[in-house]
Amino acid sequence: MPEEKKEIINSLKDTGFYKPGKIYDPGYIIAGIVIFIILAALPFLYNAGKAAKMPEPKLDTPEILQLSEAERVCVLPKQEMRENHMVLLNEWRDQVVREGNREYTGYTGKKYTVSLQNTCMECHSNYDEFCNECHRYTVQTPVCWNCHLQKPKEWAR
């Protein structure tokens, strides 16, 4: 039986059609694989030769520099502000617009007036070097600034 099988395979090879491992339509296949690799590796190709620059939100506004070291705290701890400042701003918006309540007690016990422009941006008066620094890095365009700030045109990304 194996002899017969060998004979059949040999006669198959004689026909010139039977080629184990032959790739049919190599043009389409190679083009497809190249397109697939380019699409899959797009982020790697896009970043090739670029060094990622970390955002550095600046805390050196005159208002902050005036404060003593112990007073330089925000309404919530730093890590919590990093993760959840948008939630706080949402809560503040609801609190002011819907309830008319402009009082907020920070985590240190200090009382604050609830206002983006008059409280937050009193210390952080450097929108482009503070807020926008990270928003630009993470490609976020919060709608806060549509009303709360007159941006110079050149800040628009």
Partner: peptide, 13 residues
């Protein structure tokens, strides 16, 4: 994915 594509490409139709 590339391996599977090549496997498919080797199948005669």
């Amino acid at each position: 994915v590339i391996n599977q594509i090549l496997k498919w490409a080797r199948t005669p139709v």
